[in-house]
Design a protein around this nucleic acid. Structure first.
Length: 811
DNA sequence: ATAGGGTTAG
């Protein structure tokens, strides 16, 4: 028993070495009385070697032992487990015939720690089959894994086991449950268990789990509230509690409270803990207090990568991209470790453009970080946000393991680059791939639905969101308000708005724009007043919505006031968008001179929308000179757009210059520009039905055409007169009337009347502006058939009801 | 001999 090798002797501490101190007589006694004593000593040695990670030496001791008891086996097995050498642990486990609950727990804890879910649960079942009762250790291990991997369903099963087997007041087990529920976003369940457990100030783990739960649930306020309560109760915080509460402070930018926590840390003596320090740096940096962050950094003994990462994130968030890059370069210069959190932060500074994205990407490849999920997610996001969707997709496709964040980056990227259809497609692919959406991707896809006015799909996403059980967020609610408003469902937008506890400038602006688009400009202005009284400051986009509202409601004086207000009161310089609204406003109300004056005053370059507004005004008021100027500019800005040609030609016709009109049409033809055909569509039972003028391609064309005949007869009875000005064809009166009757929007409404229930509103979409005759017909139809018709054309919404339209015939 | 809580990324 003394022939250990020299390596072992050298590595052991002699004063703990039991054998040398044992009197000789003991050895003799041992050899006579059997191996009890020798086993005891060997076990002690085994334990020490296992615990210090010298597992190979422990194995040698174990091999040489003449007699091994349960303790020996369990010790060596747990030694392998703690080093993560599960294969060896399992081999020993299989070779040990009198396994106990401890043996099982040891091995299970190993699989749990290394995230081998299925193996852990398999052993958990087998253990019970072999007649061993899981202990608080077994349950604790399993719950820790559930918590780390978000296995809420498994945790609920374990919860059932806990109740049935009398572990309900076991501190370790219940703390594990609280932690799991809190981390898996079931915070109310965690609260119930927390309250039910015996009040114990010393159970720091439990209290900390609650703080972390609130913080990680995205509820920094509640975390701070709980921490206050905890403090008031005299429960002490430790090196685990402080980082958690500081994260909560960062998330809600609670700088002042963060400083108070810093005070507690200094008094507590945990100020030297690197987790606490890095959390402090993070809190200060995220709150924009860089001198505070630097003060903490300077007290730290070593360069800490986490703290530096936090500094970079802080710089990027406060728009100091140059400094972020400088910090990154310093990390290099100091030869610091760089980890998979460093690159995502640096890549964020590429989005604003101060850093060359390609060179960072190269560095990522060179340093071998491209296979890290965080890094490749950030690459996808960066390329998507900078508009390089091909690169974004290429990185995405190369990823071995895509998570909800990878998908979200792509969905958001396509949406932000106006590829809303692709964004919807990718969202569907994500669902097919079985990835569960989170709040961020829900907000993103709902915005895409708003832009596409995809009401039915948007409603499905909304109910999906409710069913997901995810907590609502400001951005989800904002997207819902925008989606319903943009889809013409003002009541739904309203009820979301009313239910919101927190609103920001985006919420109000969505509503202002939504009401304006739906022909309710006056309500838009009311919302603006309410917004200002609530203390929310309007921004650049709010004023676009506001001026848009004025122009669509013909509120010239209000428009003038707001236009002045935006620069004088709020210091927002008008952009081309604002000028376009103002010119539109003046143009529609016949104030062409003022429109022209404003155009000449512009201190930004007029864009296409400005010229379009002006051209439309010239068309209405027959101003050829200004119209020519507007059209000529549009020919350059949008060379393939037929609209300016058609408009200009119409202006020529209106002032009797027929050859001028013919010349423009010829020019248009010679350039190969064709007018976009009018197209209307309607969604019935999740299917989109599309119609173009005089279209007979629909399977129910015969029904639709006889329905139109019925419609025309009925509305003529109540006073409808076809307006031939909107007829395209050179035909006799009767031929023109027939052509008018089969415009795409009339085909769509006829189909809507046939295929939807009496009480349902009919929602029609049109790619161009609604024609004047169809607009008039829709009013009569809404009265004669007692139906609400909502028509979204390329410009705005028309809500037809009882013979009236929301636009007041002004559009 | 077996168990529980913490920082940085969208």
């Amino acid at each position: 028993m003394h022939n250990f090798n020299s390596k072992f002797l050298a590595s052991s501490h002699n004063r703990c070495y039991p054998f040398k101190l044992k009197p000789f007589i003991h050895c003799i006694h041992t050899s006579i009385a059997g191996s009890y004593d020798s086993t005891y000593h060997s076990n002690q040695l085994l334990n020490r070697l296992s615990k210090t990670g010298q597992i190979d030496d422990a194995q040698k001791v174990f091999d040489k032992m003449p007699q091994r008891d349960e303790y020996s086996w369990n010790t060596i097995i747990s030694g392998y487990v703690s080093l993560g050498r599960l294969v060896e642990a399992k081999e020993l486990f299989d070779g040990f015939s009198s396994r106990s609950s401890i043996t099982w727990s040891s091995l299970i804890s190993g699989y749990c720690r290394h995230g081998c879910e299925s193996e852990a649960f398999r052993l958990f079942r087998l253990m019970r089959l072999e007649g061993h009762t899981p202990s608080q250790y077994t349950l604790g291990s399993i719950l820790r894994m559930c918590s780390a991997r978000g296995l809420i369903q498994n945790a609920e099963l374990i919860h059932g086991y806990v109740v049935k087997n009398g572990f309900e007041s076991n501190v370790y087990v219940v703390t594990g449950l609280v932690d799991t529920y809190a981390k898996c976003k079931h915070i109310s369940e965690a609260e119930v268990l927390f309250k039910r457990l015996e009040y114990d100030k010393e159970n720091h783990v439990l209290w900390t789990a609650m703080v972390t739960g609130y913080s990680q649930n995205g509820d920094g306020r509640k975390a701070i509230e709980f921490f206050r309560y905890m403090h008031a109760e005299g429960v002490e915080s430790n090196q685990f509690t402080f980082p958690s509460i500081l994260t909560a402070c960062s998330s809600v930018s609670a700088h002042c409270f963060g400083e108070q926590v810093h005070g507690c840390i200094v008094r507590s003596g945990f100020g030297g803990n690197v987790y606490v320090q890095s959390a402090l740096v993070d809190m200060y940096a995220k709150c924009g207090d860089f001198s505070g962050a630097k003060r903490v950094l300077e007290t730290m003994e070593d360069d800490d990568v986490v703290s530096w990462n936090s500094m970079i994130v802080g710089c990027v968030r406060h728009n100091f991209e140059e400094e972020a890059l400088l910090l990154f370069k310093k990390m290099h210069a100091r030869n610091m470790k760089i980890d998979d959190y460093t690159f995502p932060s640096v890549l964020n500074s590429c989005i604003v453009g101060s850093t060359d994205a390609k060179s960072v990407h190269c560095l990522i490849i060179k340093t071998g970080f491209e296979n890290y999920k965080l890094v490749s997610n950030a690459l996808v996001d960066m390329y998507a946000k900078t508009g390089d969707l091909n690169c974004a997709y290429a990185v995405f496709q190369k990823m071995l393991e895509k998570d909800v964040i990878s998908w979200t980056s792509l969905v958001t990227g396509y949406a932000q680059n106006s590829s809303h259809e692709d964004s919807v497609k990718i969202f569907c692919d994500m669902r097919i791939a079985g990835v569960r959406p989170d709040q961020v991707v829900f907000a993103s896809i709902l915005s895409a639905c708003a832009e596409l006015t995809l009401l039915e799909f948007g409603k499905q996403v909304h109910s999906d969101f409710i069913k997901s059980g995810l907590r609502s967020s400001l951005s989800v609610e904002n997207s819902l308000v925008a989606m319903y408003a943009k889809c013409g469902c003002l009541d739904d937008a309203d009820s979301i708005f009313v239910s919101m506890h927190v609103r920001d400038v985006i919420t109000w602006t969505s509503l202002i724009v939504g009401y304006a688009q739906n022909g309710k400009g006056k309500e838009s202005l009311r919302f603006y007043d309410a917004m200002v009284s609530s203390g929310t400051k309007p921004d650049f986009i709010t004023f676009i919505g506001l001026l848009f509202a004025c122009s669509h409601a013909g509120l010239v004086d209000d428009g003038r006031v707001y236009f002045q207000q935006m620069s004088k009161v709020y210091g927002i310089e008008p952009g081309a968008e604002h000028y376009a609204c103002m010119i539109d406003l003046f143009g529609r109300s016949g104030k062409l001179d003022e429109a022209k004056e404003l155009l000449n005053q512009m201190n930004v370059k007029p864009d296409a929308t400005v010229w379009k507004a002006l051209l439309a005004a010239c068309r209405v008021h027959g101003n050829l000179e200004l119209g020519e100027r507007a059209a000529t500019n549009l020919f350059v800005l949008e060379p393939m757009n037929a609209m300016p040609y058609v408009m200009l030609s119409n202006i020529y016709s209106a002032v009797g210059k027929w050859d001028g009109a013919a010349k423009i049409r010829k020019l248009m033809k010679s350039k190969g520009i064709t007018k976009e055909p009018g197209c209307s569509w309607i969604e019935i039972n999740s299917r989109v039905h599309t119609f173009i003028s005089e279209d007979r391609g629909h399977p129910r064309a015969a029904d639709i055409y006889s329905k139109i005949d019925e419609i025309i007869i009925r509305i003529k009875e109540s006073g409808y007169v076809p307006d031939m000005n909107f007829s395209l064809h050179d035909m006799d009166r009767e031929g023109k009337e027939v052509g008018l009757a089969y415009h795409s929007e009339k085909l769509a409404v006829a189909f809507g009347l046939l295929a939807s229930p009496q009480s349902a509103p009919i929602r029609i979409f049109k790619n161009l502006r609604v024609c004047g005759d169809c607009h008039s017909a829709m009013k009569y139809i809404s009265a004669a058939f007692n139906r609400r018709i909502i028509l979204r054309d390329s410009n705005c919404f028309h809500h037809f009801k009882e013979g009236e339209c929301s636009c007041g015939d002004y559009w």
